[in-house]
Computed example of a mutant assay.
Amino acid sequence: MIKNEKIKAAEVKLTGLQGEELGIVPTAEALAMAKKLKVDLVCTSLHESPPPCRLAGAGAVRQEKEQAKKQERPAKVKELRLTPHIEEHDLEVKKSQAERLLRGGDAVLLKVVLTGSKEGAQAKALLEELTKALAPYGKRQTGIQQSGKQAMVQLDPL
């Protein structure tokens, strides 16, 4: 992303602060307009002639860079382990951890470790409760899977 005086083109295709098209303008005039409004002139692509540029506040440019970094990073699957006999407070802590991970863009694998053969139904009920509570932040990738000594479900971020 090229900003302000680093733009070497003679003319630019200018877009305003609210996204309105201002047409093809000499670069010097576009820079003067940006200085008058106390914003930056940002070139979005160098592959076109004249290059498309827009007026943007410094905070908006920084925020776009951060969003681009987040989108570049592949989502990781983070695993949270639970037991069917979890205390209420511990369950809230795990729920807030899962919420934070989902908001951060990572997928969450909720795994309930079973010790006895009769805990399967309890584990499924626990996973159902957690997926309903985390519905605003993530959606199920699969249904609840139970195999051997564990029951699990994966939630992907929205």
Rank of each mutant, 00 (worst) to 15 (best):
E66Q: 13
A98C: 04
Q67P: 04
D90I: 05
V77P: 04
K78G: 09
L110I: 03
Q67N: 15
Q71G: 06
E79L: 10
L101T: 06
G116T: 12
K118E: 15
G59N: 02
K118L: 15
Q63V: 06
E119L: 01
A60M: 09
G105E: 03
I86E: 01
G104S: 15
L102S: 03
V108A: 05
L80K: 00
L55S: 00
P84N: 09
G57E: 11
D90C: 04
T115E: 05
Q97D: 10
D90M: 04
D90W: 12
T83C: 14
Q63W: 08
V77Q: 13
A68G: 07
A68P: 04
P74T: 09
R103H: 06
A121Y: 02
G120H: 07
L110H: 03
L91R: 12
R103F: 07
R73M: 14
H89C: 11
R73G: 00
V93M: 11
E87D: 15
Q97C: 10
K76F: 11
V108Y: 06
E99S: 12
S117H: 14
E88H: 11
K95D: 00
L80T: 03
K65Q: 13
I86A: 02
A58L: 02
T115G: 03
K118S: 14
A121V: 07
E72N: 01
L55V: 01
S96P: 00
P84H: 05
L110T: 01
T115D: 12
L114H: 02
V112R: 05
G59L: 00
V112C: 05
L80A: 10
H85F: 15
K78Q: 15
L114T: 05
T83S: 13
V93Q: 11
K78N: 09
G59Y: 03
R81C: 01
E88N: 12
L80G: 01
Q63P: 04
K111V: 14
R54P: 08
E87F: 08
V112I: 10
G105T: 07
K111T: 14
K65P: 04
D106R: 04
L114P: 01
E79I: 10
G57M: 02
D106H: 14
H89N: 13
L82N: 03
K69D: 14
A98Y: 08
K70C: 08
E88W: 12
G104N: 10
E79W: 08
L91Y: 03
H85Q: 15
L80V: 06
L82Y: 09
